[in-house]
């Protein structure tokens, strides 16, 4: 079996090592496939499906998790592909607050998605979790990309503080029995904040600055009080 495969993407031929994803092969050709949940340093799970492309199958294929195959013919920007992407974006816009997700807002504009398409939509709502001195969790802005759960677990930190509440549409990120992060195995490494694409996780300092709080006050509000030995 050859170590490489040759396929065509949007009519252009390319030879890549076996197991290369369609997403990576397209990027080598300078073809941009949009992504939302995908992060180059994390396990790709094919969640958002915005990277779906036509690849000769019965259904479209998520480019971030589909390996290139010999003779595959891929269309990354056909009308059915754009149709699916547009609808996913329209549905997502009716789900959570995307005001601080500039990449997604740019995609909505690019694909002509109508953010007001679904007037019946019940939004996913959640209280803002302000339970530690380091960062805020506002799941009204969370799209369930799983990045924070993954970095907290096997993809980076092995802290296992985060998992999920509920299932289906009302899935949110949660801790054991809703405990505040100070009472969990969270080590406040900040990696979840670093990979959050929508502003759902935000350093407390940044949030307070945005609210116009004086930097000196922020220092007093967020500093760790040392526990002195008696």
């Amino acid at each position: 079996m050859s170590d490489t495969v040759t396929l065509t993407i949007n009519g252009r031929s390319i030879t890549v090592p076996r197991q290369t994803t369609i997403l990576d092969a397209a990027r080598q050709l300078g073809i941009d496939i949009p992504v939302i949940c995908y992060h180059p340093h994390l396990t790709a799970n094919g969640l958002c499906r915005v990277c779906s492309v036509e690849a000769g199958g019965r259904t479209q294929a998520a480019a971030c998790v589909t390996a290139c195959a010999e003779g595959m013919v891929v269309q990354t920007d056909s009308e059915p592909v754009r149709y699916g992407r547009r609808t996913i974006l329209e549905m997502l816009a009716a789900t959570v607050n995307l005001a601080e997700a500039p990449e997604i807002l740019a995609l909505i504009a690019e694909y002509g998605a109508d953010a007001a398409r679904f007037p019946d939509a019940v939004q996913r709502e959640s209280p803002i979790h302000d339970d530690n001195p380091f960062y805020l969790r506002d799941y009204n802005q969370c799209i369930n990309c799983w990045r924070c759960v993954q970095v907290c677990a096997n993809d980076a930190q092995f802290a296992f503080a985060l998992n999920f509440d509920h299932r289906g549409y009302f899935t949110t990120i949660g801790t054991f029995m809703g405990d505040g992060l100070m009472d969990t195995t969270c080590v406040f490494c900040g990696q979840c904040v670093g990979v959050c694409p929508t502003g759902a996780l935000k350093p407390k300092r940044q949030a307070l600055l945005e609210q116009g709080v004086d930097p000196d006050d922020i220092f007093y509000q967020t500093r760790q009080k040392r526990k002195r030995k008696p």
Partner: peptide, 12 residues
């Protein structure tokens, strides 16, 4: 609740 089209689409 894993992939977006089903998670959100079934609700819409």
């Amino acid at each position: 609740g894993k992939c977006f089209p089903c998670q959100i689409g079934t609700q819409r």
